[in-house]
Write a protein that binds this DNA or RNA. Structure first.
Length: 271
DNA sequence: ATGCCGAGAATATCTCGA
């Protein structure tokens, strides 16, 4: 069984690339971020034609998350219980979508193996500037998700993946030039502590040891040709799910050519 | 090589992204 996460930066602009990726990669479940549209604007037909159901959560042109699955979708949640609001009036933004899929047909029968998996497509707030209210919101968002996550991990058999654009570069090596990020968001100590808290709680980030590459390159200043990128897309798995992960990689080719997202897919294989 | 910002809404220029 293969799942993936990809910040697509507008599904309406990128749908042809996304469908081609699904068919080329054999991905069973794809978590998307920054779809930048409402459900009624989402190009559902090409997904269905390719054999995928789509769960969509989008409020307007900002943010937006979705999950495409060729495994049966059995439950969806359009926010996590402790998810904070932002703005005036306060709104719980479209930044989290939990989709539970039946994995029976994609995995070999095995004693006591779970028959379902919940994949959360997450688009963590950017933060903008460390002095901005959006930054405090980002830290609250991560802390509240961690709080929620601890309750989920009370079940040692939980099959849960928290995947998406975390908007945090956890290590210095996750940015092309740490000096260029002095004082910026994504690399600050509080953000890194908020990210590391998930590991302390028992979540296992399954791509760190299997992928040695960036997942994002800015559109500006020839960042991709010069390989000046950032590693900010991750997959935290519950312990029981992490134990079944066999491989992970990125599809770097998706950053090439006309019409690329600024992020690439991060792909995880599960036995 | 992969190439110098892209997307959406509104309507000409703004917000947002990291």
């Amino acid at each position: 069984m293969r799942f993936a996460t990809w910040n697509v930066n507008s599904i309406r602009t990128r749908v042809d690339r996304v469908i081609a990726f699904l068919e080329r990669s054999g991905t069973d479940v794809l978590a998307m971020q920054e779809i930048k549209c409402r459900p009624d604007q989402f190009p559902i037909a090409p997904f269905e034609a390719a054999g995928y159901q789509v769960a969509i959560h989008g409020l307007n042109q900002w943010n937006g998350v979705a999950v495409a699955s060729r495994l049966p979708i059995v439950e969806t949640q359009d926010h996590f219980l402790t998810q904070p609001a932002f703005g005036e009036p306060p709104v719980i933004e479209a930044r989290a979508l939990g989709v539970t899929v039946d994995t029976t047909e994609a995995l070999p029968a095995r004693d006591q193996q779970a028959s379902s998996m919940t994949i959360w497509s997450l688009y963590v707030p950017n933060g903008r500037e460390v002095t901005h209210a959006h930054y405090a919101y980002k830290l609250e968002w991560l802390a509240n998700l961690a709080e929620q996550g601890r309750s989920w991990l009370a079940d040692p058999a939980a099959q849960i993946a928290l995947v998406g654009d975390w908007n945090v570069a956890p290590l210095d090596e996750d940015v092309w030039d740490v000096d260029a990020f002095e004082g910026a968001t994504h690399v600050s100590a509080p953000e890194r502590e908020a990210f590391a808290a998930f590991a302390a709680d028992g979540w296992v980030e399954v791509t760190r040891e299997r992928v040695t590459n960036y997942t994002y390159w800015d559109y500006q200043k020839l960042r991709f040709p010069k390989n000046e990128g950032m590693r900010i897309d991750f997959a935290y798995c519950s312990p029981a799910l992490a134990a079944r992960v066999s491989a992970a990689h990125i599809d770097r080719d998706e950053r090439k050519g006309k019409g690329a997202s600024d992020h690439v897919p991060v792909i995880v294989d599960v036995n």
